[in-house]
Nucleic acid binder design. Structure first.
Lengths: 239, 239
DNA sequence: CCAAAAGTGTTTTATGTACACCCATGT
DNA sequence: ACATGGGTGTACATAAAACACTTTTGG
């Protein structure tokens, strides 16, 4: 305890990093920016940046997203904290503690560079490799979290527009989990889970130009799904 | 973007806060410290403190726990990040960003004050009110998270000693969820979930001085439970 | 012999799975 | 007419809930 003075705290830089996901052409995509400055200039990275003195991490996350990728006031942006990365040495310049967020977007508005970012681009998740800093790990953590949260929360609706068909919702699950689901059973499970979705009376929409128009639904009020929508393959799922 | 220089970052103080839970006399208890200094001198609070320049938040959490409550090198301490609280104004002195942790302990070793803490005490969860800073909210968030994670992870074993009986494990669920569970069915579910617990061959222990000695189990390797152990009351569970 | 705690078995009910089938629309 | 996607019905298998019952210990 040797005379450590609790008021002589050390200053840290605090940043936010965002793993922003969307679904495009039935594939999970993540939003990356090309860094304009050192360190890691020219490398791809998650969007993010320094916290300003009078804003919360959540506000900083939305601001940086707008500045670096042009995605401002995105309707239906779901933003949630992932965790905070604080290992010494994760930024070569100085001591940086980063609050990481996972974000989900309905459809994929085009992104363009700005601020510290030379350019911004939607990238298929599998192609997002060798990112700057420890962003490979943050991205992998975010992806795991999303997959798991589809099971027991209504998170999947955050990938859908405000009004969506059950077919679109099912595609979200199939894309993120990488498994096919039985359509009749999926439909029943979703409708049997109170608060997951609510019907938009009388509304319908054609999906692929062909076929019967599908009824439309909105995201319901439930945060947690009871019962949950479990992944198939009860035995030995991927760690 | 008015000439904002990304290198002119503002310094923040970074702290950790810990919501440490254990089960005593079939009731959930949380570890509180009485603050020795301003602000909030004399008020009860979660243990925690400032991050040092060269340690991660996880290391700081363990260090502060030892300094403030005397709990050092606790075997079986489960420590996991809850989230980071970064709203401006949450500390009256200065801009403080706090990484909050939820921690679980098997049995309850006695705690004593130290460092900045005048005293430390295990408190029944219901009696932990009017804490310093925003610790009421952090504590409530941690409690919610623990309850939810019992369903789909093997977290409950972190409340048990290294070797435990299924009766003890069941008590954990009953205490945290506040519901009674059917013993035969609980037993079957736990044993049917691969990787949740593993039998200690030949070992047995008497539980209440009377009755048949119970077989002993260890925590298994599974992080996530499949299938999960869902709370009763399929309909309308507490938000 | 009784009380207390662990462990097993069984019946009933609910839930999940697989798949057949009908409906509405565009080409 | 037929391809395409939406929606319903149903039989079967599986799992969960409720509860009776046996086992092993201490008093």
């Amino acid at each position: 305890m040797d005379g450590y003075d609790k008021h002589a705290f050390e200053p840290f830089a605090v940043t936010v990093d965002l793993a922003v996901f969307t679904i495009r052409e039935a594939a999970l995509h993540v939003l990356l920016v090309e860094r304009g400055q050192e360190p890691y200039a020219g490398r791809w990275a998650l969007p993010g940046g320094f916290l300003r003195p009078d804003e919360s991490a959540e506000r900083a996350a939305r601001r940086e997203l707008g500045e670096e990728t042009g995605l401002t006031d995105v309707t239906g942006l779901h933003l949630e904290q992932l965790r905070t990365y604080s290992e010494p040495g994760r930024d070569p310049r100085m001591r940086v503690v980063s609050v990481a967020f996972a974000a989900l977007l309905p459809d994929a508005p085009e992104a363009h560079g700005g601020g510290d970012a030379a350019q911004a681009r939607w990238t298929p998740y599998e192609a997002a490799r060798d990112l700057a800093f420890d962003h490979d790990r943050i991205l992998a953590d975010a992806r795991d979290r999303i997959g798991a949260k589809l099971e027991y929360t209504g998170l999947a609706t955050a990938f859908c527009p405000p009004e969506f068909t059950l077919g679109e919702l099912q595609q979200v699950y199939e894309t993120v989990w990488g498994t096919a689901l039985d359509r009749p059973n999926f439909r029943r499970k979703v409708l049997a889970t109170p608060g997951f979705v609510e019907a938009v009376p009388g509304a319908a929409r054609l999906t692929g130009g062909r076929g019967k128009p599908a009824a439309l639904y909105r995201a319901g009020p439930a945060a947690a799904l009871h019962p949950p929508l479990l992944r198939p393959t009860t035995e030995g799922r991927p760690a």
